[in-house]
Computed example of a mutant assay.
Amino acid sequence: MAINWQGVFPALTTKFTVEEELDLPAFITNLQAQLDAGVDGIILGGSLGEASTLSNEEKNTLVQTAVEYVDGQVPVVLNIAEGATREAVRIAKEAVGLGVSGLMLLPPMRYKADERETCTYFKAIATATDLPIMLYNNPIDYKIEVTLAMFDELIALPTIQAVKESTRDVSNVTRLRNRFGDRVRILCGVDTLAMEELVMGADGWVAGLVCAFPRETVAVYKLVKAGRIEEARAIYRWFLPLLELDIHPKLVQYIKLAEVGAGIGTEHVRAPRLPLVGTERDRVLAIINEGLANRPELPQFS
């Protein structure tokens, strides 16, 4: 299935039982909520999906479940975040057989590669598959920045088509657009900057709080792209305290708790993560409950 790298792409959480096993019924419940809201694709196995705690078999199970359930309605994108280049290449080659439509690539994990090493890593994966690729540029969390000069080199490969823009510098959208035009699709990867980047010309939004609030996320995107800025801004102002849950080291626990409040998830996580307790849990719940109590009525949009 082709990907045009536009619209809302939820970075889905991985649902677990209290025993830390995959909870596929809960996963499907949330997946259906995303489809009902009109998302444009889904991303599996990202940081929000607790990928570092999943076995390869579990990742494959999630992908196969999603591909079968989605049945071509939207593209399914698999995240690759490996420490070894050959392991990343192996996963990329196997991904086609799993039925995924594209890949999202993090830079080498657990090693701060320099520019030459990072480009070589991305190229090795991009030449091992025909699947379209979105690079994840997040120097804040992963300590490696994909610079404009690196993009110059990388987009010589036709499979590299998009970037999840998470530098937290809104002006980088304009830099990318000025340098590459539409050759590189730009998807905002930071919830608290999404409307700003969409207004500045980003093509899409790789979203986190969409896992709990899919309709509102899609509404902001659709309204901005329709030029209905004031209506989008009203939703976004309501949304911002919730979106700020996405920029915390415990974003997984925070967003899963929001999924519970919205009735489309569970808060079970896999150790070493632990469920929230005490004053921290109370504080996050207060934000979620305030948002739910004042959830806006959404305008009509196509």
Rank of each mutant, 00 (worst) to 15 (best):
32 Q>W: 13
95 A>N: 07
44 L>D: 12
79 N>F: 08
66 A>H: 04
96 V>G: 11
92 A>P: 08
102 G>T: 04
88 A>P: 00
76 V>D: 06
36 D>F: 06
90 R>G: 04
30 N>I: 08
87 E>Y: 08
64 Q>I: 04
100 V>W: 11
26 A>N: 00
60 N>M: 08
34 Q>D: 09
78 L>E: 06
32 Q>V: 13
95 A>G: 09
71 D>A: 15
57 E>H: 07
44 L>I: 15
84 A>E: 14
100 V>M: 12
61 T>N: 00
64 Q>H: 13
26 A>P: 00
44 L>H: 12
89 V>W: 05
71 D>T: 05
85 T>P: 00
98 L>D: 06
53 T>C: 10
43 I>D: 05
61 T>P: 02
28 I>S: 02
36 D>I: 10
45 G>N: 06
54 L>H: 06
85 T>K: 10
41 G>H: 14
90 R>M: 12
24 L>S: 06
27 F>S: 01
83 G>R: 14
31 L>Q: 11
101 S>F: 03
88 A>H: 03
52 S>R: 11
30 N>A: 08
74 V>L: 12
74 V>C: 12
82 E>S: 05
100 V>Q: 09
45 G>M: 09
56 N>Q: 14
31 L>I: 10
45 G>K: 05
70 V>A: 12
47 S>I: 10
92 A>K: 07
56 N>C: 03
70 V>F: 06
103 L>M: 05
53 T>A: 15
66 A>W: 01
76 V>C: 13
26 A>W: 01
55 S>H: 08
84 A>M: 10
50 E>N: 06
80 I>W: 03
58 E>M: 05
57 E>R: 04
58 E>G: 09
44 L>Q: 14
92 A>W: 07
81 A>K: 05
72 G>T: 14
78 L>K: 03
50 E>H: 12
58 E>N: 07
77 V>G: 01
91 I>F: 07
90 R>S: 12
74 V>W: 01
66 A>E: 09
30 N>K: 10
38 G>T: 15
35 L>W: 07
27 F>R: 01
80 I>P: 03
47 S>P: 00
63 V>E: 05
77 V>F: 01
96 V>M: 05
95 A>L: 11
53 T>R: 12
75 P>W: 02
88 A>N: 03
75 P>I: 04
33 A>V: 08
76 V>S: 08
68 E>Q: 15
54 L>G: 01
27 F>A: 00
56 N>G: 15
49 G>E: 05
80 I>G: 04
35 L>P: 02
57 E>A: 15
43 I>R: 01
55 S>L: 13
25 P>R: 07
70 V>H: 07
29 T>I: 12
47 S>C: 10
100 V>R: 04
61 T>Q: 02
69 Y>G: 00
86 R>N: 11
79 N>E: 12
